[in-house]
Simulated assay, not measured.
Amino acid sequence: METTDQINIQTVLHEAETRGHANHGWLESFHSFSFASYHNPERMNFGVLRVLNDDRVSQGMGFGKHPHDNMEIISIPLEGDLEHQDSMGNTTVIKEGDIQAMSAGTGIFHSEYNKNKDQLVKFLQIWIYPNKKNVTPRYDQITLDLKDRHNKLQQILSPNPEDEGVWIHQDAWFHIGKFDKDFAATYTLKKPGNGIYAFVLKGDFTIGNIAVKERDGLGIWDTNAIDLIANSADAQILLMEVPMQL
């Protein structure tokens, strides 16, 4: 497979085992980018993508109320039930198939807990720098049909409230795909100058000519499209298209 304008394509591979790691007992977290006590000057961000944490929260445990401001915060549950409460008056539960987005804007407080006493919660916590500051805080949550990501890229986030998925204050688009072995797909970037960060949720892929495995992250920029092939059955991937300029 070939895509156009690939001569000057740039890539950076973050293998799963090279991520930052913190184990607090009740919380085990893997950091693709610098976060808390994990600091790597070469992994501060990918464009406006600032945080990608792969979190596991023990039964009945969670994050107490804490503040955020001027950040777009996206939670993607992978397993179990995560209970959310915030200073905007929202009390919700998110599970696999749900997508949650918050615009922290002028400031919010929120907490997140594993609602269940008998199983882990696994979820991705993602922070995106917004394209406007001090907006009114907002909360968004939707439930998507998981069948709509079988052998296709299901859009889960965009800049546009009327589009599929949640929306944020940034020219970013997220998609999740779940593929049969040997299924091939092409993703065309929505906006010139954006890059794409691919994060493998399950299985193995080849993106362009680069092999990526479960929980690897691959940043790609200076391209208009990427080609990917699933190398294993039930392979799943998250694609995050984001502006490269802060």
Rank of each mutant, 00 (worst) to 15 (best):
T3D: 00
T4K: 12
D5P: 07
Q6D: 14
N8T: 02
I9M: 15
Q10F: 04
V12I: 00
V12W: 04
A16E: 09
A16W: 08
E17C: 00
E17G: 00
T18A: 02
R19I: 04
G20T: 02
G20N: 09
H21M: 11
A22K: 07
A22Y: 03
N23A: 06
L27C: 13
F30D: 05
S32V: 13
F33S: 00
S34G: 00
F35G: 05
A36D: 12
A36C: 03
H39C: 01
N40Y: 03
P41Q: 01
M44C: 00
M44K: 02
N45L: 10
N53W: 04
N53A: 05
S58Y: 14
Q59I: 01
F63N: 04
F63Y: 01
N70Y: 12
E72I: 10
E72D: 12
E72L: 04
I74F: 05
I74E: 04
I74T: 04
S75C: 15
I76L: 11
I76Y: 13
P77T: 06
L78D: 07
D81A: 08
H84E: 13
H84F: 13
Q85D: 14
G89N: 11
G89I: 10
N90E: 15
T91P: 05
I94W: 01
I94C: 05
K95P: 03
G97Q: 10
D98I: 11
Q100N: 13
A101G: 08
M102L: 15
A104Q: 12
S111N: 12
E112A: 14
Y113Q: 05
N114H: 06
N116W: 01
L120H: 11
K122D: 01
F123T: 11
L124A: 02
L124N: 02
L124T: 10
Q125R: 11
I126Y: 02
W127I: 13
W127N: 14
I128P: 08
Y129P: 00
Y129I: 06
Y129S: 11
N131C: 08
K132V: 00
N134F: 13
N134C: 03
N134G: 05
V135D: 14
T136S: 14
R138A: 14
I142E: 08
I142K: 02
L144S: 03
L144Q: 07
D145S: 01
D148M: 13
R149G: 02
H150V: 14
N151E: 03
L157Y: 02
L157H: 07
P159C: 00
E162N: 15
G165N: 03
V166K: 05
V166C: 00
V166L: 05
H169N: 15
A172I: 00
F174Q: 07
F179R: 03
D180N: 10
K181W: 05
A184G: 12
Y187W: 06
T188Y: 01
T188L: 07
G193L: 09
G195M: 08
G195R: 09
F199V: 07
V200G: 08
L201A: 04
G203F: 13
D204E: 11
T206N: 09
I207A: 08
V212I: 09
E214Q: 14
R215S: 03
D216N: 06
D216L: 03
G217N: 03
I220Y: 12
I220M: 09
I220N: 11
T223W: 11
N224D: 15
S232K: 12
D234E: 14
A235T: 09
A235N: 10
I237Q: 04
L238K: 02
L239V: 13
M240G: 05
V242P: 05
P243A: 10
L246M: 09
L246A: 02
